[in-house]
């Protein structure tokens, strides 16, 4: 028997409990199969109507708010590309002071959420995010990571993975896609002494939903790093968005873990990892990769898995299946 749906800000036990009301409308012009909108739909359900969204420039902003239209059923603001953290800081500070002064009701807490892309977070918005985290603003910052600048047409960012083709890491005689290792944003966020940081993934909606609830309830800034497959930029069929997202977890490429007040926990253990080859073979952006490059990417994943296992103090993500 299905469990009853819950209200916003409550943790759930299975996906049947996810509340029905939608706070982002259809009819927007995101590409077919866009991972961002699976994530945004559920995070807004977890947050509910008493929410203000700050949305730095990026795909989500341009596909939802071309005047005179908007897909957002909660208050929403876009200011610029590099200042999501700072704008949210101001929103949160204003809510706090106006509630104290009686201009806004103190009975109804207002959640402040940033939805930002990887460009707007790991690159141009990095400083602004750092300031927001360090100052302790009670904001949930969601990094919707599709691993490149997709809005401007697939250029590499500081979050583009090793080996990936983008229009600025093309495959040529000298270059063979991205050759550097991406930033580790969870560790960077945690280094700011924030109470809560976690990775999320749309193929795991219950985990994603509950992490949002925890993030909203945290006594300070929270950082959610969302893995968001992009059919257009990663070159796969739009029907495979969830499959790609799931494979990222099953290969250990994207470990679902959290940092909660000093304690690390892996939320989706993977006893036997699939080889990284399984993950890259269904994405055109990795099609050019040589055996040597695939080996290197596997090493990068192995190192990351080892680091996370160390953080939690035991082997929760196992070895690659033989």
């Amino acid at each position: 028997m299905a469990l009853k749906e819950v209200g916003p800000m409550e943790e759930i036990r299975n996906h049947m409990q996810i509340p029905r009301p939608e706070y982002i409308a259809g009819g927007h012009s995101a590409c077919q199969g866009c991972g961002h909108f699976v994530i945004i739909r559920h995070l807004l359900k977890a947050s509910g109507p008493n929410t203000i969204v700050v949305n730095p420039t990026g795909c989500v902003e341009v596909v939802t708010t071309v005047f005179p239209y908007s897909s957002w059923k909660v208050p929403w603001i876009h200011v610029a590309f590099e200042n999501g953290g700072a704008v949210a800081s101001g929103v949160e500070a204003a809510v706090r002071t106006l509630q104290r002064k009686g201009v806004l009701s103190e009975d109804e807490p207002i959640n402040v959420i940033v939805f930002a892309g990887d460009g707007g977070t790991v690159d141009i918005g990095f400083q602004s995010l750092s300031g927001m985290l360090e100052r302790g603003h009670k904001v949930v910052y969601v990094l919707l990571d599709n691993e490149a600048y997709m809005n401007t047409g697939i250029q590499r960012s500081g979050s583009t993975p090793f080996g990936a083709w983008t229009t600025t890491t093309p495959v040529g005689k000298k270059w063979k896609g991205e050759w550097r290792v991406r930033k580790d944003m969870i560790q960077i966020a945690v280094a700011h002494h924030i109470p809560y940081a976690a990775t999320i993934n749309p193929a795991y909606p219950v985990d994603m939903y509950n992490k949002m609830v925890k993030a909203l309830k945290a006594d300070g800034p929270a950082f959610l790093h969302a893995y968001s497959p992009c059919p257009t930029g990663w070159r796969f069929d739009p029907s495979k968005t969830i499959e790609v997202a799931r494979l990222a977890v099953l290969t250990g490429y994207w470990v679902l873990y959290e940092y909660d007040h000093g304690k690390y926990k892996v939320n989706v253990p993977v006893l036997k990892r699939k080889p990284i080859r399984e993950f890259i073979k269904i994405q055109g952006r990795f099609r050019h990769m040589t055996e040597e490059q695939i080996k290197r990417l596997q090493e990068i994943v192995d190192e990351q898995v080892e680091m996370i296992n160390k953080l939690v103090g035991r082997t929760v993500i196992g070895p690659v299946e033989g």
Partner: peptide, 18 residues
Amino acid sequence: GAVVRDPGNTETIDVSGW
């Protein structure tokens, strides 16, 4: 300021042609 006062109104947009 180019605000949209009836948010969620992309619901009126038909994207079936995609």
